[in-house]
Design a binder for these strands. Structure first.
Lengths: 199, 199
DNA sequence: GTCCTATTTGGGAGTGGCTATGATTTGGGA
DNA sequence: TCCCAAATCATAGCCACTCCCAAATAGGAC
């Protein structure tokens, strides 16, 4: 990694920090892109080079890219796919375990929930993640194409993680995110969640 | 329903028609709100009274409100909840059955897919629908509160419908939307879709 | 029919997200 | 040390969206 990339990375992180700080202080809508640029001491156009939209500036700290696909890739190759998926989901939840990180994430999710733009963008990003996950699953089970079944599997996994996160947030973090995720997985396996069916 | 509401309804439909026609002709980005207002012969501010955002103008024709919650409410009260849900999902899919309506919807979904704003807004709307569905389910099973299990059930149902719609679109409508939906439900019941689990 | 009033409509000004362009600077390799 | 490619930045401009206030309009009271 050359010097150029290193500097770009540092600038990127700085921009996120500055932006989030301002968002926390004044609220998402009340902060303009110009203010962020000024605070970070760069030009407004440059800010847009790093983040093509204000929404992404609020989503960036969540670090969603490969959130599930990555952990799945890291599972041992001989693990059955359903277990690998379950463990990947738990692993993804583990990244919220540290207290500082989790309060940080929660504050950001709060901002996102109250701003229609970023909130909508979040779903969109997760949908892309689901597609990526489906591809990784296909690769793992040796399927040449991403079938409807695999897409549903990926979607199911994303849903479990999302529901666990919601329950964790709603429960005021009485238990850890991992425990809520464990519960959500159990819910699916035990049939506690009703499955739609036809006769 | 008074005269005032009737006129408002007519205006609303007119606006959607005019907007969609322009979107089809020139593409979502290439059409300004001013053009739509002008074409519909109303003021721009008035247009914003009817549709608070351009995105919603493209989502409106999909008529998503209560898409699943409504059909579920219409199921007989003595039907077991899982069957009621499955049938509600099929019923929702049935609204795409007529050839004219389905091609119309498909063209709109195409536009949505290529415009980041409306696409993101769509997910957000579906998330709200999921929450609404969870409430209807809770009411039906006599649960005083919307539990995590019910939320997951609702989310599951929304997912099945969404996956079915995707498969239908990807399959170039060789079969009807209802058949694809039936397949998606079967996938879930038969275990063809892999379920994440832990040991 | 004719006021009267609440609601709807519409215009105009302004904000801010975002894009396009082109000039200037900067940093890394030869 | 020079050169070229990439990064930075200012400027101008578009358009979605908001605010505010004046004008029109429709429905009810008499």
């Amino acid at each position: 990694m050359g010097l150029r990339e290193k500097k770009a990375d540092r600038t990127r992180r700085l921009l996120i920090d500055v932006a989030v700080e301002l968002f926390f202080e004044y609220g998402f809508d009340q902060v303009t892109m110009e203010q962020i640029a000024e605070q970070a001491e760069i030009g407004t156009s440059t800010l847009y080079r790093y983040f093509p939209s204000k929404d992404l500036l609020l989503l960036a700290p969540l670090d969603l890219e490969g959130g599930l696909a990555g952990p799945l890739r890291d599972r041992p190759a001989d693990e059955p796919i359903d277990l690998a998926l379950g463990n990947a989901i738990l692993e993804a939840a583990r990244s919220y375990d540290s207290p500082e990180r989790s309060t940080y994430i929660l504050r950001i999710r709060d901002l996102i929930d109250h701003a229609p733009g970023p909130r909508a963008r979040l779903w969109d990003t997760l949908a892309q993640e689901s597609e990526l996950l489906a591809e990784v699953i296909a690769e793992r089970v040796g399927s040449p194409e991403v079938s409807a079944e695999l897409r549903m599997t990926a979607s199911l996994a994303m849903m479990v993680l999302g529901q666990a996160a919601d329950a964790w947030r709603a429960g005021n973090q009485e238990a850890s995110a991992v425990e809520y995720t464990h519960d959500a997985l159990a819910m699916l396996a035990s049939g506690a969640a009703i499955m739609p069916r036809v006769d």
